[in-house]
Amino acid sequence: MTDCSDTASRCRTVLICHADDDLNREGLARWLATTTELVGVVILEEPAKRMRRRIQREIQRVGLVRFLDVLAFRVYYKLFLAKRDHAWERTTLDQLCVQFPPLGPSTRILHAPSPNSKEVEQFLQSLTPDIVIARCKSLLKESVFTIPKSGTFVMHPGICPQYRNAHGCFWALAQNDRGNVGMTLLKIDKGIDTGPVYGYYRSEFDETQDSHHVIQHKVVFDNLDALTAKLNEIQAGRAAPLSTQGLPSGEWGQPWLTAYWKYLRDARKRA
Results as ranks from 00 to 15, higher is better:
Met1Gln: 07
Met1His: 10
Thr2Phe: 08
Asp3Asn: 13
Thr7Leu: 13
Val14Tyr: 00
Leu15Phe: 00
Asp21Ile: 10
Asn24Phe: 04
Leu28Phe: 12
Leu28Val: 01
Ala29Val: 08
Leu32Ser: 04
Leu32Asn: 03
Ala33Lys: 09
Thr34Val: 13
Thr36Leu: 12
Leu38Tyr: 10
Val41Ile: 15
Pro47Arg: 11
Ala48Pro: 08
Arg50Pro: 00
Arg54Pro: 02
Ile55Gly: 02
Gln56Val: 03
Arg57Lys: 09
Arg57Ile: 03
Glu58Gly: 00
Arg61Thr: 10
Gly63Trp: 06
Val65Gly: 04
Phe67Tyr: 07
Phe67Ala: 03
Val70Glu: 03
Arg74Glu: 09
Lys78His: 13
Phe80Gly: 08
Leu81Val: 10
Leu81Cys: 10
Lys83Val: 04
Asp85Phe: 07
Asp85Ala: 08
Glu89Cys: 06
Leu93Phe: 01
Leu93Gly: 00
Val98Cys: 09
Gln99Ala: 12
Leu103Asp: 02
Gly104Ile: 03
Pro105Ala: 08
Thr107Asp: 02
His111Met: 12
His111Trp: 08
Ser114Glu: 04
Pro115Arg: 00
Asn116Phe: 02
Lys118Gln: 14
Glu119Met: 06
Glu119Gly: 05
Val120Pro: 07
Glu121Gly: 15
Gln122Asn: 14
Gln125His: 13
Ser126Cys: 05
Pro129Glu: 02
Asp130Thr: 08
Ile133Arg: 00
Ala134Gly: 01
Ala134Asp: 00
Ala134Cys: 03
Lys137Gln: 12
Glu142Lys: 13
Ile147Pro: 12
Lys149Arg: 15
His156Asn: 07
Pro157Ser: 13
Gly158Trp: 09
Gly158Phe: 07
Gly158Lys: 13
Cys160Arg: 11
Cys160Tyr: 09
Cys160Thr: 15
Gln162Leu: 14
Tyr163Ala: 15
Tyr163Cys: 14
Tyr163Arg: 13
Arg164Thr: 09
Trp171Gln: 11
Trp171Asn: 09
Trp171Ser: 05
Gln175Leu: 12
Asn176Arg: 14
Asp177Ser: 10
Asp177Met: 12
Met183Pro: 03
Leu186Ser: 06
Lys187Leu: 06
Ile188Asn: 02
Asp193Asn: 10
Asp193Lys: 09
Thr194Leu: 09
Gly199His: 05
Tyr201Cys: 08
Ser203Asn: 07
Phe205Lys: 03
Ser211Glu: 07
Ser211Trp: 07
His212Val: 12
His213Gly: 10
His213Asn: 14
Gln216Trp: 11
Lys218Met: 15
Lys218Cys: 11
Val220Leu: 13
Phe221Trp: 07
Phe221Asp: 10
Asp225Cys: 11
Leu227Trp: 01
Lys230Asp: 00
Asn232Ser: 14
Glu233Thr: 04
Ser243Pro: 02
Gln245Asp: 11
Leu247Phe: 04
Pro248Gly: 07
Ser249Trp: 06
Glu251Trp: 11
Trp252Asn: 08
Pro255Asp: 05
Ala259Cys: 12
Trp261Ile: 13
Lys262Asp: 14
Tyr263Met: 09
Leu264Ala: 09
Arg265Pro: 01
Arg265Glu: 10
Arg265Tyr: 15
Arg268Ser: 10
